Amino acid sequence: MCNVFLWNGARNSAMGAKIAWDSVCTPKEAGGLGLKRLEDWNKVLGLKLIWLIFTSGGSLWVSSSFWHDNWTSLGPLIELVRERRPQVSGLRREAVVAEALTSDGWWLARSRSRSPTIALLKACLPNAQEIMESEEDDMYIWFPEPGRDIGVFSASDTWRAMHPSPIEVFWHEVVWFTGRIPKNVSLLGLQLETECNQVWAFFVSRLNLVSPQSFKAVLRWLKAPTRNKNVTLIIRLIHQAVLCLVWKERNKRIHTAVEKPPGTLIAETQQIVKLRLDPPTRRQITPQGQDLVLATWFSFFAG
């Protein structure tokens, strides 16, 4: 992430944020950078941990605490018999439900004690035979939202349930397309008021395209500037590179009074885009007679 842009300009400092964290953490589709808040993501991972604890524990009777869990639907038994009464029953305070079962049923089945605690426990315990005859482990189903079960836990589905889809901005596909320049996107996604300039006009002219004048109109146009997929990718990359370089040039002129001529910015843009086109060209599979994207680039910008 370009912390120099997001923070105060110092590479090793996160003090004095220039961009509201709400904007940085807004989904890409809504005009932000799509970063997840650690606090919110931690909640999702915490839910995943709870899910794993339950699903890896096997049967409820094996893993549930006899005294402290609400496994009888009457509430925790420790609340019924009070804190000091478990010792009267002979079952340790840390016992799980399975420890209270014997081959004959509950460990209290043959007790002749007249203790009120023992009598209360006998009345509260469910049928032991039904529990022992249950051979299948408990099944858990994850419901990220009421009425919508997805079976097993999904962190992405849970995140979307906790953060409903916001209103999309029309230009997000132009900014976050496949093959984008990551470093430039982090600036472009938040710096969307830069006007088209001489550098942008040079590339549009060389590609034999006609671009709108206003910035928002350009973004709409970039969704489908031409039927040629190679040229579409090229002009989108040029758009990102030009905005990034012009933004940097603006800051440099303000703080150092050093200026680069348009020709230098054009040459730097060409270098950035040409290098960025190499990886997709290596992966590209084209029908016979159709140019690779890098070949299309050189047909417009030789050398």
Rank of each mutant, 00 (worst) to 15 (best):
M1Q: 13
N3F: 12
V4A: 10
F5S: 04
N8T: 06
I19W: 06
W21N: 09
S23C: 10
P27H: 06
E29T: 07
E29K: 09
A30G: 05
G31H: 08
K36E: 01
K36H: 10
K43F: 10
L45R: 15
L52W: 07
L52E: 13
F54L: 15
S56T: 14
L60P: 02
L60E: 07
W61Y: 14
S65W: 07
S65T: 12
N70M: 07
W71T: 01
W71N: 01
T72H: 12
G75A: 06
P76I: 14
E79R: 12
V81E: 10
R85N: 15
R92S: 15
R92I: 11
A98Q: 14
L101R: 04
S103E: 14
D104F: 09
D104C: 08
L108M: 05
A109C: 02
R114G: 12
S115C: 15
S115P: 10
I118E: 02
A119Y: 00
L125N: 01
A128W: 13
A128P: 15
A128Y: 11
E133F: 04
S134L: 12
I141E: 13
F143I: 11
F143N: 15
P146A: 14
P146M: 11
I150A: 04
G151P: 05
S156I: 08
T158K: 00
R160L: 06
G179E: 11
L187H: 06
G189L: 00
L192H: 03
L192E: 09
L192G: 04
E193P: 00
C196M: 06
A201W: 01
V204E: 04
R206H: 02
L207K: 02
N208F: 04
L209N: 06
P212V: 00
K216P: 03
T226G: 04
N230E: 05
I234C: 01
I235A: 01
R236L: 08
R236D: 01
C244T: 11
V246Q: 04
R250A: 05
R253N: 07
R253L: 05
T256I: 05
V258R: 10
V258L: 11
G263V: 04
G263C: 07
T264A: 13
E268M: 06
Q270Y: 00
D278Y: 08
P279A: 12
T281M: 07
T281C: 13
R282S: 07
I285M: 13
L294F: 08
A295Y: 05
F298A: 07
